[in-house]
């Protein structure tokens, strides 16, 4: 495993050498396909369905970018990565863009040379314990064994949390969520910690969800978002504004169903007109045509639709919007204006 860390470090270092010759947009257009770095499987965010088609929250953002750039949301090649390999794969150029429930941090931005796109999911790290343990607060977890996914920010947060509260724990390192689940249910660890969204989705699949409780403490900020390599600002802008467009579309009431209708002719709302291309030349500013946002919305719907379809209250994962509601609805989603 050390060798991988070493390789990742070398990859990150030599990324600077690559950045000079970027023009990812031209590469993607010439290829006719977007290489999107996703996870090897996180419930609700990225997984192959029964027919082998990738779906999930992150996957939909990949499809939106593909729709905006090459004109078809199906023209995506998914590059599945583990928590350890994701950045190396992106930095080496095997992937064009990354949507892999990845927390934006300063070191990843500055040291690993990634540019983070706007946050598409605000998460926080929590703890899940069997109710039989009788634990009601994370501070009661002294001496507990904790299942923790390696190579993630949760690993570091966990160490911080226990150090601050001066209590001890025994880490049980695991590679994937599925593995963590097996270990946790098998009793090899007392506590499972990961992002609260992950805990909720994991708990929802248990045979007896009531026997497990998610503790009230949220011990970290986990702003999850997409990322691209440093050094190609045009490509970064494309990713950034596609995400912004999907969030703005929800705010403006543009849906997958009515987008084409609203785009037909300029309406009364200039914001809608600018987004859908009937007013201004916003597409050409990022190297695309005027219908870029329209195609993205038509491919996957607006932010709210993506959320509801993959992880919302009606799905098995049953996450509430919470922080991820629009700013006008009490959340902190706040898309920069397109003008």
């Amino acid at each position: 495993m050390r060798s991988i860390k070493y390789a990742a470090a070398v990859a990150a270092l030599s990324a600077t050498a690559l950045s000079a010759q970027a023009a990812t947009l031209d590469d993607v257009k010439a290829r006719g396909e977007l290489n999107c770095v996703v996870s090897t499987g996180v419930a609700g965010f990225a997984f192959p369905d029964d027919s082998g088609k990738w779906s999930g929250f992150d996957v939909d953002f990949c499809r939106a970018v593909a729709a905006a750039v090459v004109g078809d949301g199906q023209k995506v090649k998914f590059v599945p990565t583990t928590g350890k390999t994701r950045f190396t794969v992106l930095n080496s150029g095997e992937g064009d863009i990354l949507f892999r429930n990845t927390t934006e941090t300063m070191s990843r931005d500055a040291d690993l040379k990634l540019s983070f796109l706007p946050v598409n999911y605000y998460d926080g790290q929590g703890f899940m314990v069997p109710t039989a343990l009788g634990v009601t607060s994370a501070k009661d977890l002294d001496g507990a064994s904790v299942c923790i996914q390696t190579g993630t920010t949760t690993e570091l947060n966990l160490a911080d949390f226990f150090r601050i509260n001066n209590i001890s724990y025994e880490p049980v390192p695991v590679e994937t969520n599925a593995e963590a689940q097996t270990n946790y249910l098998g009793g090899r660890c007392d506590v499972y910690t990961t992002d609260a969204s992950g805990l909720a989705s994991t708990r929802s699949t248990f045979e007896n969800p009531d026997e497990h409780a998610i503790l009230p403490e949220i011990i970290s900020k986990e702003p999850l978002g997409g990322a691209v390599r440093h050094g190609d600002d045009q490509w970064f802008d494309i990713g950034k504004w596609v995400v912004n467009a999907l969030i703005a579309a929800e705010e403006l009431g543009i849906t997958q169903a009515n987008a084409a209708e609203m785009a037909k002719e300029a309406g009364d709302n200039p914001s809608v007109n600018r987004l859908l291309g009937s007013e201004g030349e916003f597409g050409s500013m990022i190297g695309l045509d005027g219908q870029w946002a329209l195609r993205a919305i038509e491919a996957v719907g607006n932010y709210g639709e993506i959320f509801d379809r993959n992880i919302g209250p009606d799905t098995a994962i049953a996450l509430q919007r919470g922080l991820n509601a629009q700013w006008s609805d009490g959340g902190i989603l706040y898309a920069a204006p397109i003008r």
Binding site: S39, G41, F47, D50, Q181, T182, S201, T205, E207, A316
Partner: peptide, 18 residues
């Protein structure tokens, strides 16, 4: 094995690793 792991992330089937 990879297909299996990825499949386990599908909410319909989670937890069937055995």
């Amino acid at each position: 094995l990879g297909i299996g792991q990825a499949s386990l992330a599908d909410n319909k089937w989670q937890g069937l690793s055995t």
